[in-house]
């Protein structure tokens, strides 16, 4: 589904190109759950942003294929239409736009891009009801302005709610566990697990092994200074939790 080959990406830092991703190779197949772990500043969020199509980053080398299509020239919304979803680490506020209205717009814009009619209101309401129940979201919450005054946990739950509504092929969860208490974590993970199928894939970006207790990965990758330096099964996450990243750094430098 997602094939990343020798990906290099930089950001313009006051006129100087600063290299962040330095040759990423990663393949995610349908039905798989991958986790990317790594210390702060290793490039985890950058990788998520580049795949989602944030223009701030410049791809200097390498390719990103999504279902065998090079997506480099696609705008962020076009990638979204193809089924790439990013659960943001810091979801932004849009005052005056309700969660429902935002979701309605997102779904209908995606349908429009696919040449489909707008979703009938009745169907939309049904979908909203179904997905909000899945994430144990109070209906009142849906009429509030998007992310405005939401607690950290509410924001993350809302991200996963949006994911449930949009039913993406590839969901990238960027530190979805940060700011969540244990109950919220369980609800969010439960939601993700219920949405998982053999046709879609999940990429979990996290600092901690905690979330991976609930969303069990098939593969764990360690990102260090813009490169994937180690890959393994779910047990790698445990090892990292126990020993930290220093031993890997030493291994890499050796």
């Amino acid at each position: 589904m997602l094939k990343i080959k020798n990906l290099h990406a930089s950001i313009d830092d006051n006129g100087v190109l600063k290299s962040i991703l330095k040759g990423i190779n990663l393949e995610i197949k349908a039905g798989e759950v991958h986790a990317i772990m790594g210390p702060n500043g290793s490039g985890k969020s950058t990788l998520a942003s580049v795949v989602a199509g944030k223009e701030e980053f410049e791809v200097t080398k390498g390719t990103v294929l999504f279902n065998d299509e090079d997506i480099e020239d696609l705008a962020a919304e076009e990638r979204a239409h193809k089924g790439i979803f990013l659960s943001f680490q810091y979801p932004v506020e849009i005052p005056g736009v309700s969660v429902t209205n935002f979701m309605k717009t997102a779904i209908n814009e995606t349908r429009k891009a696919k040449g489909l009619e707008e979703m009938p209101a009745k169907e939309m309401l049904k979908l909203i009801r179904e997905k909000s129940e899945l994430l144990e979201i109070d209906r009142k919450f849906l009429s509030r302005s998007l992310n405005e005054g939401f607690s950290g946990g509410e924001k993350k739950r809302n991200e996963i709610f949006q994911m449930a509504m949009l039913e993406p092929k590839l969901a990238i969860l960027d530190e979805t566990d940060s700011g969540l208490d244990i109950d919220a974590l369980r609800i969010v993970a439960n939601g993700v697990n219920k949405l998982k199928s053999k046709d879609n894939a999940v990429l979990v970006i996290t600092h901690y092994q905690r979330l991976l207790e609930y969303i069990v990965p098939d593969f764990v990758h360690v990102l260090l200074d813009g490169r994937i330096v180690k890959s393994g099964g779910k047990e790698l996450a445990h090892e990292l939790e126990e020993k930290g990243y220093d031993w890997i750094k030493e291994e890499v430098n050796a």
Binding site: E55, A76, E77, L86, V92, I94, A113, Q162
Partner: peptide, 12 residues
């Protein structure tokens, strides 16, 4: 950031 957030949800 607001624009990108919308873009990511499929909104031009």
């Amino acid at each position: 950031d607001q624009i990108f957030y919308c873009n990511q949800r499929g909104i031009s």
